[in-house]
Amino acid sequence: MALNTPQITPTKKITVRAIGEELPRGDYQRCPQCDMLFSLPEINSHQSAYCPRCQAKIRDGRDWSLTRLAAMAFTMLLLMPFAWGEPLLHIWLLGIRIDANVMQGIWQMTKQGDAITGSMVFFCVIGAPLILVTSIAYLWFGNRLGMNLRPVLLMLERLKEWVMLDIYLVGIGVASIKVQDYAHIQAGVGLFSFVALVILTTVTLSHLNVEELWERFYPQRPATRRDEKLRVCLGCHFTGYPDQRGRCPRCHIPLRLRRRHSLQKCWAALLASIVLLLPANLLPISIIYLNGGRQEDTILSGIMSLASSNIAVAGIVFIASILVPFTKVIVMFTLLLSIHFKCQQGLRTRILLLRMVTWIGRWSMLDLFVISLTMSLINRDQILAFTMGPAAFYFGAAVILTILAVEWLDSRLLWDAHESGNARFDD
């Protein structure tokens, strides 16, 4: 018995066209964080690309023209004298008006014999932002004059995390709450300039795509075929072959399989920071003279006294001054041990922890910024005066060393310790 099946006739004509040209192939790229070699397709503007294995951002879609970056830099340069030299806060102490600005706080630190601690604050609040705007201006002028731009481009990517104007702005709020127990506070004209400078700096850093600047100024022929001998440069993120001198053909720094002496430098910085954190938390970090009496505060006791007036601000200072430094030390110690013992479990967790400490590390400088600003506000000789204690130097040095330890660690070593050939990683 035959089955009668109805015929289905399409209502619209289906047209099949042959592909007349070869589909576009992607360029081969190595991930600078996990060293995976993959094919990167062509990316349009405002599109980002991520590593298929570790999800690290390979290409950032946010990109401004150099002219727009230069305009932002010149605007920031105009704001800087007002943000640093004009009063941020006014207080009335014992019937006398006192003005506080950024430069005055750094000068008070240096004047009291601790120039190293003052230079830490100076670099993060004044030096690094000033280098940022002058570097962008150098790129703008240098591109037109045919100057060598490689050193500036190499420095810009590392400079971003040292620009800490946003953290200093939080420190202004913390210092205001600490001082309000002794005097009446009012915002100064410099505060508005400083807030504007923070906003412009944040926007500029978020749109400063150094890798795209490398592509514009020093374009290189990408690798179009897969080759395990391809290496990625950690300076400019170019994937290719080393030249005859073993250097990256684009930025001219040595092109090595792994960062040289990464573990040794990381261990040295980490152990030194552990040693410095002990006096930083045991010795007094601030000293207040009130009517001839002397009151010393460690980091913890200062947080407890701050909690009596504002528990939320005390929580912020606790996280930045105690929780973050010790968390960074514990995480980095764990990561280094996992590399030495070739741990194969929990790779995803370790990668996330490394990215976390990379982002939060700079916030530990908050305590030094609060001390710097408070020193310029309260300084009335023996009637009422505020000065920093010996722990300030140890704390600042420990924070900087932990930042350097994270920067010096080559994250690809975590993958080397893991089993080879993993296309995915999980716990």
Rank of each mutant, 00 (worst) to 15 (best):
C124Q: 03
M109W: 01
M80V: 06
R350P: 09
L200I: 11
F386N: 00
F238G: 12
L384D: 00
G292E: 02
W64F: 13
A128W: 01
T334E: 11
K13E: 06
L384K: 00
L234Q: 11
K12R: 07
A272S: 14
T117V: 06
A71G: 05
T224C: 14
V406L: 10
F123M: 03
I253D: 04
L165D: 15
T110W: 01
I136H: 07
G188P: 02
A18L: 07
F194H: 10
S262H: 15
F318D: 01
R412Y: 00
R256E: 13
D114R: 06
M304S: 12
A423V: 14
G118L: 01
N209Y: 09
R225T: 10
R258H: 09
L271T: 13
V102A: 06
D427H: 13
G105W: 01
I383V: 05
G127V: 03
L149E: 04
N209K: 12
I167P: 06
L130F: 11
N291S: 15
L377P: 01
R150I: 07
R350K: 11
K13H: 05
P390T: 10
V16D: 07
M332I: 11
M304C: 09
R53W: 06
T387Q: 06
Q33K: 11
I288Q: 00
L149H: 04
R380C: 03
I303R: 00
A223F: 14
D63S: 15
T298L: 12
N101V: 01
A269P: 08
V133F: 04
Q264W: 03
R231F: 09
R62N: 06
L89S: 12
M80I: 06
S376I: 10
S308W: 12
A320T: 04
F393K: 10
C51W: 15
P249H: 12
A2N: 06
C248F: 00
R258M: 06
E212R: 15
C251Y: 01
P249W: 12
L404G: 07
Q108P: 13
C248R: 01
V399D: 03
R226W: 14
L139N: 03
T67F: 13
M365N: 09
L404M: 13
A71K: 02
C31W: 00
G61H: 15
E296Y: 13
D297T: 05
I136S: 05
Q112N: 08
I371D: 00
L354F: 11
L93H: 00
R30A: 07
F192Y: 10
R350E: 12
I400N: 09
V317H: 00
I116R: 07
S420R: 07
G421P: 05
C343F: 15
L40Q: 07
L413A: 08
S193T: 06
G95V: 00
G85S: 06
I288P: 01
V232Y: 14
T202W: 15
A183M: 02
I167N: 03
R412W: 00
D99Q: 09
L77D: 04
I403D: 01
W267M: 14
S273A: 14
M164C: 06
M109G: 06
M36E: 12
W107D: 15
R294K: 09
S176C: 12
V133I: 14
A71H: 03
A269R: 01
R17A: 08
N4S: 11
Q7T: 04
I177P: 09
I400A: 04
A56R: 09
V399T: 11
G61N: 12
I285P: 01
R412S: 02
E86S: 06
T224W: 13
I274N: 13
G20I: 05
G421A: 15
C124L: 05
L200V: 15
G315L: 13
M375K: 10
M164W: 04
D35Q: 03
D381V: 01
M109Y: 02
G292F: 13
S176E: 08
M120K: 01
S206R: 15
D243I: 10
W107N: 15
N281V: 09
I322F: 13
E211T: 08
R247G: 13
R25T: 08
G95L: 06
Q220P: 12
A49Y: 09
P249Y: 12
S262M: 14
I136E: 04
E296G: 11
I8W: 06
L130P: 12
S206D: 08
I378F: 01
F74M: 08
W267T: 14
I185C: 03
G315Q: 14
L271S: 10
G171D: 09
A312W: 15
R25N: 08
I339R: 11
I185L: 11
S273T: 15
R258C: 08
S376N: 01
L336D: 01
M356S: 12
R216Q: 13
F369N: 07
L404D: 09
A397W: 11
G389Q: 03
Y28P: 10
G235Y: 05
L230F: 14
G302S: 01
Y241C: 12
L200K: 09
E419K: 12
R412E: 00
F425D: 11
S135P: 01
M388T: 05
C34L: 00
I274H: 13
T15M: 09
L336T: 11
I116T: 11
S301W: 07
I299K: 00
I316Y: 02
G293H: 06
P325A: 07
E22K: 06
F369S: 05
